[in-house]
Deep mutational scan, measured.
Amino acid sequence: TFTSIVTTNPDFGGFEFYVEAGQQFDDSAYEEAYGVSVPSAVVEEMNAKAAQLKDGEWLNVSHE
């Protein structure tokens, strides 16, 4: 299960995956970082959410 939350205070020191406002979700980078295949429906969902981000916001993507 993939989830996401919007934050204005990303923790770059941890093992977190963020999408910056104005960027798209990079499923290849996510797969490389976590060894998890990302279904195309999830990629579309995360890109739709990322498109709604305002300046200074980040989308924190995770999975269980």
Rank of each mutant, 00 (worst) to 15 (best):
T1Q: 12
T1Y: 13
T1I: 15
T1L: 10
T1D: 07
F2W: 15
F2Y: 08
F2C: 04
F2V: 03
F2T: 01
F2I: 04
F2E: 00
F2L: 04
T3A: 08
T3R: 10
T3Y: 14
T3P: 02
T3E: 05
T3F: 14
T3K: 10
T3S: 10
T3V: 12
S4Y: 13
S4I: 08
S4H: 07
S4P: 03
S4F: 13
S4D: 03
I5A: 10
I5W: 14
I5K: 11
I5F: 15
I5S: 13
V6M: 06
V6Q: 02
V6N: 02
V6L: 06
V6I: 12
V6A: 04
V6F: 05
V6R: 01
T7R: 00
T7F: 05
T7P: 00
T7Q: 04
T7M: 07
T8C: 09
T8G: 06
T8S: 10
T8D: 08
T8Y: 08
T8E: 08
T8R: 12
T8I: 09
N9E: 12
N9A: 11
N9C: 14
N9D: 11
N9P: 01
N9L: 08
P10T: 03
P10E: 01
P10Y: 02
P10K: 05
P10N: 03
D11V: 12
D11A: 09
D11G: 07
D11H: 11
D11C: 14
D11M: 10
F12S: 06
F12D: 05
F12C: 08
F12I: 07
F12E: 05
F12N: 05
F12V: 06
F12G: 05
G13A: 11
G13M: 10
G13E: 12
G13L: 10
G13C: 15
G13Q: 10
G13S: 14
G13Y: 12
G13D: 12
G14C: 12
G14Q: 08
G14D: 07
G14W: 07
G14N: 09
G14S: 14
F15C: 15
F15H: 15
F15Q: 12
E16L: 15
E16D: 11
E16S: 14
E16H: 15
E16R: 14
E16N: 15
E16Q: 14
E16M: 14
F17S: 02
F17Y: 08
F17C: 06
F17G: 00
F17M: 02
F17P: 00
Y18G: 01
Y18C: 04
Y18I: 05
Y18R: 05
Y18T: 02
Y18S: 03
V19I: 12
V19A: 00
V19E: 02
V19M: 06
V19T: 05
V19N: 00
V19H: 02
E20R: 14
E20D: 05
E20P: 14
E20W: 15
E20N: 07
E20H: 11
E20G: 15
E20S: 13
E20L: 07
E20V: 08
A21H: 10
A21N: 07
A21I: 04
A21E: 04
A21S: 09
A21L: 05
G22K: 06
G22A: 04
G22T: 04
G22Y: 06
G22V: 01
G22P: 00
Q23T: 12
Q23A: 12
Q23D: 08
Q23H: 13
Q23F: 10
Q23G: 14
Q23K: 13
Q24S: 11
Q24V: 11
Q24C: 10
Q24H: 10
Q24Y: 12
Q24F: 13
F25A: 03
F25P: 00
F25I: 03
F25Q: 01
F25G: 01
F25K: 01
F25R: 00
D26S: 08
D26Y: 06
D26W: 07
D27K: 15
D27S: 15
D27Y: 15
D27C: 15
D27H: 15
D27P: 15
D27A: 15
S28E: 12
S28C: 12
S28I: 14
S28K: 15
A29Y: 07
A29V: 07
A29P: 00
A29H: 06
A29D: 05
A29W: 07
A29G: 07
Y30D: 00
Y30W: 07
Y30S: 00
E31N: 09
E31K: 13
E31A: 13
E32G: 08
E32W: 11
E32D: 10
E32V: 11
E32I: 13
E32N: 11
E32P: 01
A33K: 15
A33P: 02
A33D: 04
A33E: 07
A33M: 15
A33W: 13
A33S: 08
Y34I: 03
Y34R: 07
Y34K: 08
Y34A: 02
Y34H: 09
Y34W: 08
G35A: 06
G35V: 01
G35D: 05
G35R: 07
G35Y: 04
G35W: 05
V36A: 04
V36M: 09
V36K: 05
V36S: 04
V36H: 05
V36G: 01
S37V: 12
S37Y: 10
S37W: 11
S37Q: 12
S37I: 13
S37A: 12
S37F: 10
V38K: 00
V38M: 05
V38S: 02
V38E: 01
V38W: 02
P39D: 03
P39S: 06
P39N: 04
S40N: 09
S40I: 12
S40T: 12
S40V: 12
A41L: 10
A41S: 13
A41N: 12
A41V: 10
A41R: 12
A41F: 13
A41C: 12
A41H: 14
A41Y: 14
V42D: 04
V42F: 07
V42T: 06
V42W: 06
V42S: 03
V42H: 02
V42L: 05
V43P: 00
V43F: 06
V43A: 08
V43I: 13
V43H: 04
V43M: 06
E44C: 10
E44D: 12
E44Y: 07
E44N: 10
E44M: 11
E44V: 11
E44G: 08
E45G: 05
E45P: 01
E45F: 10
E45H: 08
M46H: 00
M46T: 03
M46Q: 02
M46G: 00
M46I: 15
M46K: 00
M46V: 10
M46D: 02
N47S: 07
N47Q: 07
N47C: 06
N47R: 09
N47I: 05
A48Q: 11
A48V: 10
A48C: 10
A48E: 11
A48S: 09
A48I: 12
K49M: 11
K49A: 09
K49Y: 07
K49E: 06
A50T: 05
A50Y: 00
A50I: 08
A50C: 07
A50K: 01
A51M: 11
A51Y: 05
A51F: 06
A51R: 10
A51P: 04
A51K: 10
Q52D: 09
Q52H: 08
Q52C: 11
Q52A: 13
Q52M: 13
Q52N: 11
Q52R: 09
L53T: 01
L53N: 02
L53C: 04
L53R: 00
L53V: 00
L53S: 00
L53M: 06
L53W: 03
K54Y: 05
K54H: 08
K54E: 07
K54P: 01
K54M: 09
K54C: 06
K54G: 07
D55R: 14
D55H: 13
D55V: 13
D55N: 12
D55I: 14
D55Q: 14
D55S: 12
D55G: 09
G56D: 05
G56H: 05
G56M: 05
G56T: 04
G56I: 02
G56F: 06
G56C: 05
G56L: 03
G56P: 02
E57I: 00
E57L: 00
E57N: 03
E57H: 05
E57M: 04
W58P: 00
W58L: 02
W58V: 03
W58G: 02
W58S: 02
W58H: 02
W58F: 09
L59Q: 01
L59F: 01
L59K: 00
L59H: 01
L59S: 00
L59D: 00
L59Y: 00
N60L: 15
N60Q: 15
V61R: 02
V61S: 00
V61F: 04
V61Y: 01
V61H: 02
V61E: 01
V61K: 00
V61L: 05
V61P: 01
V61Q: 01
V61I: 13
S62I: 13
S62W: 15
S62V: 10
S62G: 08
S62T: 12
S62R: 15
H63W: 12
H63T: 04
H63F: 12
H63G: 03
H63M: 07
H63K: 01
H63Q: 05
H63I: 06
H63S: 05
H63Y: 13
E64Y: 12
E64M: 13
E64P: 09
E64A: 13
E64L: 13
E64Q: 14
E64R: 13
